[in-house]
């Protein structure tokens, strides 16, 4: 086992799949020679050649649209969009083709491809570099959406995504690309898509989060002095959502808190809470709570802290939910 950052774990998964599977190709803007603006794919072109790892013209619709064609022709493209805020030109391809080709062709075609993109805030970036657009993918039938929070999961989930017969959108928490290392096996392994991970068992509150927000939450919880027993769940796959794990947990704790970076309205938290209401309403001891952003455009860095998660926001919600009496 080697100690790896989340970024290295993604690179390692790609490297391994490029090595093991000759149909895998990897491309995107600056993702070939330079290895991407974050260097996630660094070294892969030198090792696997320019034909399989390459730079594209700046055109997100061409990146995803060509991946659709490649997948139909039997390849497994793993494409990179430079930032999730620039996925919009590709959204047409993603919604009208990527998500529907299987259904349209009655499964004569499947699209085993992966669209990777860094997402999320907290990196003091320019406009369109900080969004959390989970909903825009999770809302579309036919798409899977995966978000790792740890190096171990990043490698296992990306490997699973590449092997998956259906298109997977893979969000990378850029704020934690290089923050912290974890032991990651050298050999190939899979973390199953569609399974949440109970990181810590508890009896008072079910706290669900994913990606960068989950790491923020873990950091905040270190400062929790009160004796509140938290069941911490890393959702890991946003679509298809493993609400069963969450519902079972809420049946035990009676309280649900969802922490994310998203804007409030129609967030993934909204859907989770709806499902818990449907499946575990009578177990609830307090109204479910979402902590995250407001319904505003994410501010530029001088104002971003107003929208971003922080320890105080998270801990206040934990305390108030724990203390809620009917």
């Amino acid at each position: 086992m080697a100690m790896m950052t989340l970024l290295q774990a993604i690179n390692n998964a790609l490297d391994q799949q490029l090595t093991n599977d000759p149909t895998v190709v990897s491309y995107g803007e600056d993702a070939g020679f330079e290895g991407g603006v974050f260097r996630v794919t660094a070294g892969l072109q030198a090792k696997h050649g320019e034909a399989r790892v390459f730079d594209t013209p700046i055109a997100e619709s061409a990146i995803v649209g060509s991946a659709v064609g490649m997948a139909i022709a039997g390849m497994k493209p793993v494409v990179e969009l430079q930032f999730s805020g620039f996925m919009f030109p590709a959204y047409n391809q993603i919604v009208v083709h990527l998500a529907r080709f299987r259904n349209r062709s009655r499964s004569s075609y499947s699209l085993p491809l992966v669209v990777r993109m860094p997402y999320g805030g907290g990196v003091r970036a320019l406009e369109h570099h900080s969004e959390s657009l989970e909903t825009l993918f999770a809302h579309i039938p036919g798409l899977k959406l995966v978000i790792p929070s740890t190096p171990y999961d990043a490698k296992g989930l990306l490997t699973a995504a590449i092997k998956d017969p259906d298109p997977v959108i893979f969000f990378e928490p850029k704020k934690y690309y290089r923050a912290g290392k974890q032991e990651v096996p050298e050999e190939e392994y899979i973390v199953e898509i569609g399974k949440a991970n109970v990181l810590q068992e508890g009896t008072d509150i079910t706290l669900v989060s994913w990606g960068a927000a989950l790491r923020d939450t873990q950091k905040a919880l270190q400062n929790l002095k009160e004796n509140i027993s938290i069941e911490l769940i890393d959702l890991r796959t946003i679509a298809p959502m493993d609400s069963v794990t969450v519902v079972e947990s809420v049946k035990k704790t009676g309280r649900l808190l969802v922490v994310s970076e998203q804007v409030k309205t129609l967030s993934i938290a909204s859907e989770l809470i709806a499902r818990v209401n449907e499946e575990a309403f009578l177990y609830l001891e307090a109204p479910p709570v979402r902590v995250g952003g407001y319904d505003i455009t994410i501010p530029l860095p001088r104002g971003e802290h107003h929208q971003a998660l922080n320890d105080k926001k998270i801990l206040r919600a934990v305390r108030s939910l724990a203390g809620y009496e009917v």
Binding site: E29, D30, F33, E34, V37, D55, P57, I58
Partner: peptide, 11 residues
């Protein structure tokens, strides 16, 4: 250049 990508790779 477009970031690292030379003009010849654009068109």
């Amino acid at each position: 250049y477009a970031i690292s990508t030379p003009r010849a790779k654009q068109t």
